[in-house]
Each structure stands twice: as structure tokens, then as C-alpha cells.
Amino acid sequence: MIVYLLCFILFLVGIYGILTKRDLIKIILSIGIMGYAANLMLILFAYRNNSIYPILSEGKAVSQMVDPLPQALVLTSIVIELGTTAMLVALALRLYEKYKTFDITKIRRLKG
């Protein structure tokens, strides 16, 4: 229970960064934090007490393995996260080239 709550707090820190920060870089980092928290939450749901990793080998009982399904989902999610981060970085660089700043309020003022 307390682990879930701490993970949720990590997610809220990400939301806080998105809502209050004015630097594009900080916003990208906040999106990354939210992604970490979501991934970790899914894996926390999958954990089983006194269990082993879901890879078969000699002398490992199948009935004592953790849930492999969320792990598979999160594995793809991590990869997509990196792709979106790269794309956001490219967009931020283009914005910097046009407006010479990362401050989103100034970018808004310079519109048009």
C-alpha cells in the first residue's frame, strides 16, 4: 500500500513539473518522470511474495513465478518512451532555433 502511494507521489511530482515549469527542457524531463512512475506502478502490481523471475531453467517451479504479463507491457512502453523523448527533443531544438529561447511564455508571446 505505502509503496503504491510513494509511486503515485512520484507521478504527481511529474504533473507538478509540467504544470509549473516554464522551460521546455524541464517539461520534457517531467514527462519522463511520469513515464517512470507509470511503468513502476504496473510492475509493482505484478509482484508476488517470495517469487522468482519468469524465466525457466533447471529446478525452477512455474507456480512460484511473478506475473509476466505486465512486464511484457512495460517492456514495450519503455522503448516508446525513448522514441517520444527523442521526438520532443527534436521539436524543442526547432523551437529554440526559431525563438532563441526555451521559455514557453516567451514563445507564446512571439506567436504570429
Binding site: I25, N39, A46, V74, L75, A86
Partner: peptide, 26 residues
């Protein structure tokens, strides 16, 4: 710790890569 070595490997490597991209760009 949560018995997901697959994810630990992938997360570790992708973290390194994300850091390289962010540092190179910003």
C-alpha cells in the same frame, strides 16, 4: 528487486541512451 531482470536490463540501457540524447541536445 521486483524480479524483472528483462526490464532492468532494458531500462538501464535506454536510460543511458536518453541521457546521451539529452546532454547532446541541451
Amino acid at each position: 528487486f521486483l524480479q524483472a531482470p528483462d526490464l532492468a536490463v532494458v531500462q538501464f540501457l535506454f536510460e543511458i541512451f536518453a541521457l546521451i540524447i539529452l546532454v547532446r541536445a541541451f
